[in-house]
Nucleic acid binder design. Structure first.
Lengths: 122, 122
DNA sequence: TTATTATTCACCCTTTGAGGTGAATATCGA
DNA sequence: TCGATATTCACCTCAAAGGGTGAATAATAA
């Protein structure tokens, strides 16, 4: 039922704030992979990649399934929803405010017939 | 001309990965405010808020303008664009892949007339 | 001029991330 | 059984985040 808490969003965004982890996710968004496969493109140690994966798991952006000695990782896009919603909400707030301000300024222009600097009222 | 580098995205997402900073941005998305005003709702020290603001500035999510002794902070939504695009791209990749897989499975069902478990091929 | 207000600077402390190395564990293949 | 492969565990180092306190700076107000 997806009751995303504030701390979940923290973990999600923190997990995304690293280029290695974003690359791993990008890879996984196109299909499952093993740890070694994920580590391959990077110059860092397998161990470091393993740690990145753990952080992604903690954020629930990645799921793990064991197949013998291999660990198969798969992408889970669900936590991205909350992140996306947060960002879009702020953008919408901001845009709405700018538009309201714009309308206000235009009304004043019509009433007073004088030109005004948009930045003044910010 | 907006050449968003990887490191910029790092900074943006890292700045967003803290509840205090998200609250500050949410407040600023509805209009400018001074440092003290921003610090007001929080139990942490003014100094800590000041540091959070600096991190938001570094990520260019907040701009500062000095008016006498007061520092007026304003929201800048521009860095959110790259973050939003990254997230939506991954979701689109993933969704597209799932749909392609779905079509494949339906084709096989028609051909072989047998039921298959969607998870099997993941 | 002198308080008061707004904000930052300079430190301190603790936790955690990001990287490394070497050993441990578990499974596969011959 | 035994060596190779896949992955993690335990430990180390360094840098930075997030919190704090007290002093410094700058501007307003009395």
């Amino acid at each position: 039922m997806i009751a995303a808490k504030v701390a979940d969003l923290d973990q999600t965004l923190m997990a995304l704030a690293d280029p290695t982890r974003r690359a791993i996710l990008q890879r996984l968004s196109q299909g499952e992979a093993r740890v070694t496969e994920l580590a391959d493109p990077f110059s860092i140690s397998l161990n470091s990649v393993s740690k990145h994966i753990r952080i992604l798991e903690r954020a629930q952006l990645v799921q793990r399934r064991r197949l013998g000695r291999e660990h198969i990782l798969s992408f889970n896009s669900q936590p991205l929803n909350a992140a996306s919603i947060w960002i879009e909400t702020q953008r919408a707030n901001w845009t709405a405010r700018l538009e309201a301000l714009d309308r206000l300024l235009q009304t004043q222009d019509r009433t007073a017939g004088k030109q005004s600097n948009q930045k003044e009222m910010l």
